[in-house]
Structures are given as structure tokens and as C-alpha cells.
């Protein structure tokens, strides 16, 4: 599903040149649950952004669904994104002005789904995430765990084949964190590919494979059983 070949990302300012990713190569198959770990500044989020088509690499090749996309335009990337990828962020990134229902509905609007179908699908997902009773609330009226459930609901509503999660439990207490991880695990069990960046060893245990990054390079790539 995903193939990275010598992905490199360099950030330049007037005086400093920082290499965030340095010739990173790996493959991820459909249905896998992969965790990416490493210390702060090692390039985890940069990698996730490139994998999520939010950013282009400076060098290297990136095959998404067998298609080379490293030179794609923003418009092409936007189309691929909305049809195939769901995002979950550490700080939830819900739109404060929209209700729970409307936040979850948003990806479907951009996909151009008719209103009736949207309503049905959003209700379905909210039920699934056990947040339907909060559908008319605004994000700031919810607890952190509830907000992240809304965020996961929003990520899966368009039935993406890939979910990218950036520290999904980073802002949650352990009980809520576990709830969210279980949700991701269930999705994976139903065939969704999940790539997750995390600091938490506990969360990483949910993954089948672990990629460790240090200073922009992969230093370790292991299958779960061998690693733990």
C-alpha cells in the first residue's frame, strides 16, 4: 500500500539547513498497524505528514496505492487525501465553531455526498464511537477523551483505507487513552491500515510493527513479537 524510497526532507531558513528525514525507506502493506517512535525532533511528524500527503518530500520517491506521488500538486494530493486517508491528531484539531455532528460530517461534504446519505453515515459512526448522545454539542463542551473519539469518528467517517494518528493519546489520561487505542485496534481488525506516531510504549504495543527513528533515519524496524 505504501512504499517509501529514500525519502528526504530538508528545511531551509536563511542561515540554517535542517535535515528532518534522511533517506528513509520502508514498505507498509494493506491492513497493517504500524507504530513510529523516536525522541522529539527525530522526524516522526515530518514523516507522517509526507505519508499523509500533507507535505512533499525534498528528495526520494513515495508510492501511495502503487502511484508515485512525491511530485503531486496540492490539488491532486487533496483528492487522494479526502478519498483514502483519515487523520487523528494529538490536539484533536476539531473546529470549535462546529457541533460534533458537523465536525464529523465535514469530510463527507468535501466528498460531495448527498445530505441524506451524510446524515445516515454520520449517525452510524457516532453510534459506533458511542458519542451519538453528544451530537449537538460543541467540542469545547466535551472532555478530552470524548473529543478524541469525535476526531476518530471524523477520521473514519469517509471509510478511508489508511488512518494516520499523530500521538492520539498524548493529551489524554490513561483511561481515555486506552479507549481510543481500542477504537483504533478495532478499526485495524476490520481491515483499516493504521500508521501511528507515539511516545508511549503502551500504545506502541497495539501495533504489529514498530519503526524507530533517530535524527531522521530509521535505526530499528521490528515485528512486534521480536521486539517486545
Amino acid at each position: 500500500m505504501i512504499k517509501a524510497e529514500k525519502l528526504t526532507k530538508v528545511f531551509r531558513t536563511d542561515e540554517v539547513e535542517t535535515t528532518a528525514l534522511n533517506e528513509v525507506s520502508f514498505e507498509i502493506n494493506k491492513g497493517e498497524f504500524v507504530a513510529i517512535m523516536g525522541p522529539s525532533g527525530c522526524g516522526k511528524s515530518t514523516l507522517l505528514n509526507i505519508l499523509g500527503l500533507l507535505d512533499n518530500p525534498s528528495k526520494g520517491k513515495y508510492y501511495f496505492l502503487e502511484k508515485e506521488v512525491s511530485k503531486s500538486t496540492e490539488r491532486q494530493r487533496a483528492n487522494l487525501r479526502k478519498e483514502n486517508i483519515g487523520f487523528v491528531f494529538q490536539n484533536f484539531n476539531l473546529i470549535d465553531e462546529l457541533t460534533v455532528f458537523e465536525n464529523v460530517e465535514l469530510p463527507l461534504i468535501y466528498l460531495g455526498m448527498p445530505a441524506k446519505d451524510r446524515r445516515k453515515r454520520v449517525d452510524e459512526v457516532l453510534e459506533q464511537m458511542q458519542i451519538a448522545h453528544r451530537r449537538k454539542h460543541f467540542p469545547l463542551q466535551l472532555s478530552g477523551g470524548q473529543q478524541q473519539r469525535v476526531a476518530v469518528a471524523r477520521a473514519v467517517v469517509a471509510k478511508p483505507s489508511l488512518i494516520l494518528a499523530d500521538e492520539p493519546t498524548g493529551n489524554l489520561d490513561s483511561a481515555h487513552g486506552e479507549e481510543v487505542m481500542n477504537l483504533l485496534n478495532d478499526l485495524n481488525a476490520n481491515g483499516t491500515t493504521i500508521i501511528m506516531v507515539t511516545h508511549s510504549q503502551r500504545d506502541a504495543e497495539y501495533a504489529q510493527r514498530l519503526i524507530r527513528l533517530f535524527d531522521g533515519q530509521i535505526i530499528n524496524e521490528n515485528i512486534k513479537k521480536n521486539l517486545l
Binding site: 487525501r81 479526502k82 484539531n93 465553531e97 465535514l106 468535501y110 466528498l111 471524523r154
Partner: peptide
């Protein structure tokens, strides 16, 4: 800005 970022991530085009 955050709102714009989220919308874009969710697939909003610039025209949207």
C-alpha cells in the same frame, strides 16, 4: 488558521 488547516486536511480544496 487552525480551522483552515483542519479543513484542508479533511480534503477541502482551496476553492471550497
Amino acid at each position: 488558521a487552525k480551522e483552515v488547516g483542519v479543513r484542508k486536511t479533511l480534503g477541502a480544496s482551496r476553492l471550497n
